[in-house]
Amino acid sequence: MNMKLELFVLPISDVDRARAFYEKAGFRLDLAKDINEDYRVVHLTPPGSEASIIFGRGLTTALPGSAQGLYLVVTDIEQARAQLVERGIEVSEVFHDGKGVFFHGHDAGDVVHKGQGQVRIAGPHPERASYGSYATFSDPDGNGWVLQEITQRAPGR
């Protein structure tokens, strides 16, 4: 049986501010509904994605900004970064992980993530290896997103 990740509940503090940010980033608005003053839902989908985000009032008890490591896969990291920057989104410079396995940092400004063995090296992966180049950004609450360049999927993906 296939299981596809379809939806992620994003913890935010201000529904209108979050909606404006994600629409500015190019996410498609799928639903915006005020049920009552305690329950409000906004559902958006990143460009070309089958998975979506949902946020609002009365949806989660998670702290705003506590979602980290939300990956958006792109085929051209520099073009994807440029498009977000053109839309007014603050995005880190493109980098690659010096350990070359999996980027697992959170702060866009960190160079070395102490205790994690994480090392950010400026620029895309030297061979432009699939899964090897990244850029990061955060929404107004601090929920952390990672752009990851994948040009050729690993077997079975």
Score class of each variant (00 low, 15 high):
64 P>F: 03
71 Y>L: 09
52 S>E: 06
135 A>V: 07
112 V>H: 10
117 G>H: 07
122 A>L: 02
93 E>M: 03
83 Q>Y: 00
38 D>Y: 13
45 T>P: 05
108 A>R: 12
59 L>H: 04
17 R>V: 13
43 H>V: 02
94 V>D: 10
21 F>Y: 12
16 D>F: 13
60 T>R: 11
121 I>W: 00
38 D>W: 07
43 H>T: 14
43 H>P: 00
129 A>K: 15
31 L>P: 00
49 S>K: 14
95 F>I: 05
84 L>F: 15
76 D>V: 05
110 D>F: 13
139 D>K: 03
26 G>N: 03
76 D>E: 14
106 H>Y: 08
112 V>L: 12
84 L>R: 02
61 T>L: 14
89 I>D: 04
74 V>T: 14
32 A>R: 10
80 A>L: 07
94 V>Q: 06
124 P>K: 06
14 D>K: 07
74 V>K: 01
55 F>Y: 00
78 E>M: 10
53 I>M: 00
93 E>N: 08
83 Q>V: 00
84 L>K: 05
101 V>D: 11
83 Q>F: 03
91 V>F: 14
32 A>T: 08
97 D>F: 02
79 Q>L: 12
22 Y>S: 05
70 L>T: 04
34 D>L: 15
138 S>F: 08
140 P>N: 02
86 E>D: 15
95 F>R: 13
90 E>M: 05
138 S>N: 01
42 V>G: 01
113 H>L: 15
36 N>M: 01
134 Y>R: 07
96 H>V: 02
56 G>T: 00
115 G>T: 00
41 V>H: 00
32 A>G: 04
113 H>A: 15
129 A>W: 15
52 S>T: 10
